[in-house]
Amino acid sequence: MTAGPTNAHQALVLKLLRDSGPNSRAGLGELVDLSRSKLAIEVDRLMETGLVVNDGLAASRGGRRSHNVRLAPELRFLGVDIGATSADVAVTNAQLEVLGHLSQPIDVGAGPVVVFEQVLDMAAKLRAAGLAEGFAGAGVGIPGPVRSSEGVPVAPPIMPGWDGFPVRQALSQDLACPVMVDNDANLMALGEQHAGVARSVKDFVCVKIGTGIGCGIVVGGQVYRGVTGSAGDIGHIQVDAEGHPCACGSRGCLEAHFSGAALARDARAAVESGYSGELADRLAVSGTLTAADVADAAAAGDTLAGELIRKGGDLLGQVIAGLVSFLNPGLVVVGGGVTGLGHGLLAAIRTQVYRRSPPLATGNLPIVLSELGSQAGVIGAARLITDRVFSPA
């Protein structure tokens, strides 16, 4: 493992080079607030560790031209985004550019041993493709609450067999590098902050809709995780006291009424009750319905599919309106596997938020779909581990 920075100045230099690309020593000195001589000492120390290299001559600022410096091009990080039904694994360089990305179906209910065998196999395929000899670190997202200080899932409702599993410890041994673990919605927020629609926003919420529903909350440029790591678990806010039972053991949770699984359940129930149309045709052909089927049917004009999306968007919009009233964010990002539902979903969410939240909070509030799609989570995972690797020991 490459040695990390030894002080806050070096850590800031590394993060500036990660986020903004190569820069001259003089330019870095201004951003780090160090004299040219002191900055040169810190950069030389980072070059000795192998984290930083020269990168050609900088543009002239008058007088003798200095060299640009950049993060070592051979540094590689692994980003892992585990969902309930699929996993994404990517290799990035130190500037978090995705060099290779694999995705495959999984069943998170099969347990951590089975899932991580698949994840490690995907990482091995990326290495075999020549994308990495080894990893300087790995970030991992899972679809449940995480005690981030230990890298351990805590009673995740849709992840039987995962409670207390030492994800960070197990993977760091298998990958021979540092590992950080977080909730998948937090990592989606980090990904959007680094390379997506939230690049210039310090305060925003990122709602991830998949088999479950979660929310990454960013305040002052930092993910807010709460005291124990459970902040943002909006899928288990009650929206109907007499509603559907939820995997968490409660009843009427948002997740039980609008998520990928809930959408598929309601679509099938409606068709089996006699509704005919595009969804009925799809069920007859395949024997099953998914959230993607609902999205496709809505796009084809199926009235049931459109109504299911509108109702779900209304419920989600009510919860997001509460977040907007409470947090006053500068942006709301909606992402995850169910965003294939597209602008019909977004319209329903916007209607509820703009209707229910105060005008001062919504007057200049964009509510948008994720730009990064399935790459948001893996980029966020790589951001998480570089935050750790590029911090003083």
Rank of each mutant, 00 (worst) to 15 (best):
M122D: 08
G243Y: 10
F135Y: 12
I213M: 07
A84S: 12
L78R: 10
F258A: 06
P5V: 07
I234E: 03
A90P: 10
S24T: 13
D240N: 12
S286Y: 14
T228V: 14
A94S: 10
M1I: 13
S230P: 14
L31Q: 11
A376H: 06
V333L: 03
L327V: 14
Q95G: 13
T362K: 05
P392M: 05
L279K: 09
S24F: 00
I213P: 09
Q10L: 08
G260R: 02
A138N: 06
V334R: 02
R268L: 14
G243K: 07
R282H: 05
A298P: 11
S276F: 00
L279T: 12
L17F: 03
A267V: 03
L171S: 11
G191C: 11
G134V: 15
P105I: 05
V218F: 10
A58I: 08
E133A: 13
H67P: 11
G243I: 07
P112D: 00
L57N: 09
C206Y: 03
G301N: 07
R70F: 03
R265H: 12
I234F: 00
I209H: 04
M122V: 13
I320G: 09
I217Q: 02
G83M: 02
P166A: 00
G249F: 01
K202D: 15
D296I: 14
H194T: 15
V239G: 03
D163Q: 07
L263I: 14
